[in-house]
Amino acid sequence: MSQWVIVSGVSRGLGHAIALDLLAAGYDVAGCSTTLSDEVKALQSEFGPRFVWQATDMGDNDAIDAFVAGSIAHFDAPPWGVVNNAGMSVEGILSTLPLADIERVLQVNLTGAIALTRAALRRMMRTRKPGRIINISSITGSRGYTGLSAYAASKAGMDGFGRALSREVGRLGITVNSIAPGYMKTALSAGLDDKQLDQIVRRTPLNRLCELSDITPLVRFLLSDEAAFITGQTLTVDGGLTS
């Protein structure tokens, strides 16, 4: 039986690209998102039972547990890996950001990812077999960006979570890594205007924004057996912007 992987936030953008890439590579995928997008419907149609999807609010820990339990029941095995991709952003100067928005970003991006990882690990650790946890972080977590303080906090938290967890579960052969993409032209970077994006491109040695296809092969590699000795790391893919 092929291995299966949990991917959160599959309705669009990077999460959808990761799910599609992994399915094409032979993994089965359990995806979740808040909305049943046309992209998700296309995955369901193309891959049938190899792709299972459940509406899940990453702000609802019980829903996250139910999604993992349902996916394990569907594939009748613990997952090989988890890709914590689901995320949201809130832009604005901190002093004017509503606290409710800040709490929501931290819950969805950070607590939700931790809850999803916890739920999956509870089944993975019982088998005493290797596995993979991959957190989709951001260079804003290490470098920051004006107007993205809460988002940056959630991503820095994700990196710290991964470093600590890698020590905790390393003995089981479970690796935990972060991927920190540079700025991408996806819905999440909608808060950046064209002028800001142009400025980012000018400061990037490789002279362009980050593409989905820059990230998906790295996810696939970190899931592979060849990446078994890489853990506790944050791998930056930003065209040299932060070099």
């Binding site: 509870r122 650790m125 905790e168 579960v169 089981l172």
Partner: peptide, 13 residues
């Protein structure tokens, strides 16, 4: 402690 956590999770399940 990791084995103990595994035991607790197994018992909970």
């Amino acid at each position: 402690s990791l084995d103990l956590a595994t035991l607790v999770v197994t018992l909970e399940e």
